[in-house]
Amino acid sequence: MKLYKIETTQHINASIEECWDFFSSPKNLQTITPDTMRFEILDFDNKRMYPGQIITYTLKPLLGIKISWATEITVSVENHYFVDIQLSGPYKLWHHKHFFETTETGVKMTDIVHYALPFGYLGRIMNKLVVANKLKAIFNYRYSKIEEHFNTKVQ
Protein backbone atom coordinates (compact mmCIF):
# COMPACT_ATOMS: atom_id res chain seq x y z
CA MET A 1 0.00 0.00 0.00
CA LYS A 2 1.44 3.34 -1.09
CA LEU A 3 0.91 6.06 1.55
CA TYR A 4 0.72 9.73 0.61
CA LYS A 5 1.00 12.70 2.94
CA ILE A 6 -0.36 16.24 2.86
CA GLU A 7 0.74 18.77 5.46
CA THR A 8 -0.54 22.32 5.72
CA THR A 9 0.03 25.08 8.25
CA GLN A 10 -1.96 28.25 8.73
CA HIS A 11 -1.80 31.13 11.18
CA ILE A 12 -5.14 32.17 12.62
CA ASN A 13 -5.74 35.55 14.25
CA ALA A 14 -7.90 34.25 17.06
CA SER A 15 -7.67 32.70 20.48
CA ILE A 16 -7.21 28.97 20.87
CA GLU A 17 -10.74 28.81 22.31
CA GLU A 18 -12.24 30.54 19.26
CA CYS A 19 -10.37 28.17 16.93
CA TRP A 20 -11.40 25.13 18.88
CA ASP A 21 -15.01 26.29 19.00
CA PHE A 22 -15.09 26.57 15.20
CA PHE A 23 -13.13 23.44 14.25
CA SER A 24 -14.66 21.13 16.87
CA SER A 25 -18.11 21.62 15.37
CA PRO A 26 -18.69 19.16 12.50
CA LYS A 27 -21.28 21.50 11.00
CA ASN A 28 -18.44 23.87 10.02
CA LEU A 29 -17.01 21.24 7.65
CA GLN A 30 -19.47 22.45 5.07
CA THR A 31 -18.21 26.04 5.44
CA ILE A 32 -14.64 25.07 4.55
CA THR A 33 -15.44 22.60 1.75
CA PRO A 34 -15.75 23.84 -1.85
CA ASP A 35 -19.36 24.29 -2.97
CA THR A 36 -18.52 22.41 -6.17
CA MET A 37 -18.14 19.23 -4.12
CA ARG A 38 -21.78 19.38 -2.98
CA PHE A 39 -20.77 18.35 0.52
CA GLU A 40 -23.73 17.39 2.71
CA ILE A 41 -23.58 16.19 6.31
CA LEU A 42 -26.09 13.41 6.88
CA ASP A 43 -25.51 12.77 10.59
CA PHE A 44 -23.21 13.83 13.42
CA ASP A 45 -25.58 13.75 16.43
CA ASN A 46 -25.43 17.56 16.82
CA LYS A 47 -22.81 17.36 19.57
CA ARG A 48 -19.39 18.92 19.88
CA MET A 49 -16.61 16.66 18.73
CA TYR A 50 -15.71 13.76 21.01
CA PRO A 51 -13.75 10.48 20.65
CA GLY A 52 -15.99 7.87 19.08
CA GLN A 53 -18.19 10.37 17.25
CA ILE A 54 -19.29 9.18 13.82
CA ILE A 55 -19.92 11.73 11.07
CA THR A 56 -21.58 10.64 7.83
CA TYR A 57 -21.87 12.71 4.70
CA THR A 58 -22.07 12.64 0.94
CA LEU A 59 -20.11 14.60 -1.60
CA LYS A 60 -19.56 14.76 -5.33
CA PRO A 61 -15.82 15.30 -5.73
CA LEU A 62 -15.43 14.23 -9.35
CA LEU A 63 -17.70 14.21 -12.40
CA GLY A 64 -20.80 14.66 -10.23
CA ILE A 65 -20.49 11.11 -8.89
CA LYS A 66 -22.02 10.88 -5.41
CA ILE A 67 -19.85 9.28 -2.73
CA SER A 68 -20.88 8.34 0.78
CA TRP A 69 -18.26 8.84 3.45
CA ALA A 70 -18.16 8.02 7.17
CA THR A 71 -15.48 9.25 9.52
CA GLU A 72 -14.81 8.69 13.19
CA ILE A 73 -13.19 11.08 15.63
CA THR A 74 -10.69 8.78 17.32
CA VAL A 75 -8.93 11.32 19.54
CA SER A 76 -9.94 14.77 20.75
CA VAL A 77 -7.97 16.82 23.25
CA GLU A 78 -9.73 20.16 23.73
CA ASN A 79 -7.78 23.19 22.45
CA HIS A 80 -4.90 20.97 21.27
CA TYR A 81 -5.71 18.40 18.59
CA PHE A 82 -8.10 15.87 17.16
CA VAL A 83 -7.85 12.97 14.74
CA ASP A 84 -10.41 11.70 12.27
CA ILE A 85 -10.22 8.50 10.26
CA GLN A 86 -12.31 7.19 7.41
CA LEU A 87 -14.54 4.26 8.30
CA SER A 88 -15.95 3.98 4.79
CA GLY A 89 -15.47 6.04 1.68
CA PRO A 90 -13.26 6.57 -1.34
CA TYR A 91 -9.86 5.94 0.28
CA LYS A 92 -8.20 2.73 1.32
CA LEU A 93 -6.86 4.72 4.28
CA TRP A 94 -7.57 8.25 5.53
CA HIS A 95 -5.98 9.51 8.75
CA HIS A 96 -6.27 13.25 9.40
CA LYS A 97 -4.61 14.98 12.36
CA HIS A 98 -5.52 18.58 13.27
CA PHE A 99 -3.15 20.41 15.65
CA PHE A 100 -3.70 23.81 17.32
CA GLU A 101 -0.82 25.64 18.96
CA THR A 102 -1.02 29.01 20.71
CA THR A 103 1.40 31.63 19.38
CA GLU A 104 2.11 35.22 20.40
CA THR A 105 -0.32 36.49 17.76
CA GLY A 106 -2.96 33.78 17.62
CA VAL A 107 -2.96 30.11 16.72
CA LYS A 108 -0.84 27.95 14.45
CA MET A 109 -3.04 25.27 12.91
CA THR A 110 -1.39 22.26 11.30
CA ASP A 111 -3.16 19.54 9.33
CA ILE A 112 -1.43 16.27 8.52
CA VAL A 113 -3.23 13.80 6.31
CA HIS A 114 -1.97 10.33 5.46
CA TYR A 115 -3.99 8.60 2.78
CA ALA A 116 -3.86 5.60 0.49
CA LEU A 117 -5.94 4.75 -2.54
CA PRO A 118 -7.42 1.41 -3.53
CA PHE A 119 -6.61 -0.43 -6.77
CA GLY A 120 -2.83 -0.74 -6.40
CA TYR A 121 -0.94 0.61 -9.40
CA LEU A 122 -4.11 2.11 -10.90
CA GLY A 123 -4.64 4.02 -7.64
CA ARG A 124 -1.09 5.40 -7.90
CA ILE A 125 -1.79 6.64 -11.41
CA MET A 126 -5.09 8.20 -10.27
CA ASN A 127 -3.28 9.94 -7.41
CA LYS A 128 -0.76 11.45 -9.79
CA LEU A 129 -3.34 12.48 -12.40
CA VAL A 130 -6.31 13.52 -10.25
CA VAL A 131 -6.43 12.90 -6.51
CA ALA A 132 -3.32 14.77 -5.30
CA ASN A 133 -4.32 17.86 -7.30
CA LYS A 134 -7.92 17.66 -6.10
CA LEU A 135 -6.81 17.42 -2.46
CA LYS A 136 -4.43 20.35 -2.96
CA ALA A 137 -7.30 22.42 -4.39
CA ILE A 138 -9.56 21.45 -1.46
CA PHE A 139 -6.93 22.47 1.10
CA ASN A 140 -6.27 25.72 -0.80
CA TYR A 141 -9.98 26.49 -0.71
CA ARG A 142 -10.08 25.65 2.97
CA TYR A 143 -7.11 27.96 3.58
CA SER A 144 -8.88 30.86 1.87
CA LYS A 145 -12.17 30.26 3.74
CA ILE A 146 -10.33 30.19 7.07
CA GLU A 147 -8.50 33.40 6.11
CA GLU A 148 -11.83 34.97 5.28
CA HIS A 149 -13.48 33.77 8.49
CA PHE A 150 -10.69 34.57 10.97
CA ASN A 151 -8.04 36.78 9.40
CA THR A 152 -9.99 39.47 7.58
CA LYS A 153 -12.08 40.63 10.53
CA VAL A 154 -11.63 44.22 11.59
CA GLN A 155 -10.08 44.22 15.03
Rank of each mutant, 00 (worst) to 15 (best):
F22C: 06
S144A: 14
T103N: 09
K92M: 11
P51T: 06
L135C: 03
D21T: 12
M49Y: 05
P118C: 06
V107Q: 05
G106T: 02
G64C: 04
I65G: 10
N28A: 11
L42Y: 05
F82T: 00
K2W: 01
Y143G: 08
I146Q: 01
L42K: 08
Q30G: 13
W20R: 04
N79E: 07
V130W: 01
E147R: 04
L42I: 14
L59R: 08
T74Y: 08
Y4L: 05
F119Y: 11
S68L: 11
S24V: 04
N151H: 08
R142L: 13
T103K: 13
H96M: 09
H149Q: 13
S15R: 10
R38D: 10
K145C: 09
F39G: 08
T56G: 10
E40V: 09
V107G: 05
M37E: 13
I54R: 15
S25M: 13
T58K: 13
F119M: 14
L29Q: 07
W69V: 01
I65A: 14
T33C: 12
F139W: 07
M109S: 01
F82M: 03
H96Y: 03
H80R: 13
F100K: 00
R48I: 10
S76C: 14
T102Q: 11
I16F: 09
L87T: 04
G120S: 06
K145Q: 15
F44G: 09
H149P: 11
I138W: 03
N127L: 03
A132T: 00
I55R: 03
T105K: 12
M49P: 13
S144C: 10
T56V: 08
A116L: 06
N127E: 07
F44R: 08
S24F: 10
Y143L: 14
F100W: 01
A14D: 02
K128W: 00
I73Y: 07
L63F: 12
Y141S: 10
T33S: 14
K153S: 15
T36D: 15
K128G: 00
T152G: 11
D35G: 12
E17L: 15
G64Y: 07
E147W: 05
F150L: 05
K136P: 09
T74H: 07
E104D: 14
I112V: 09
F44N: 10
Y57W: 05
R142P: 03
K134I: 06
A14S: 13
T58S: 15
P26F: 05
G106R: 01
V113W: 00
P90W: 02
I112Y: 01
N140L: 13
I112F: 11
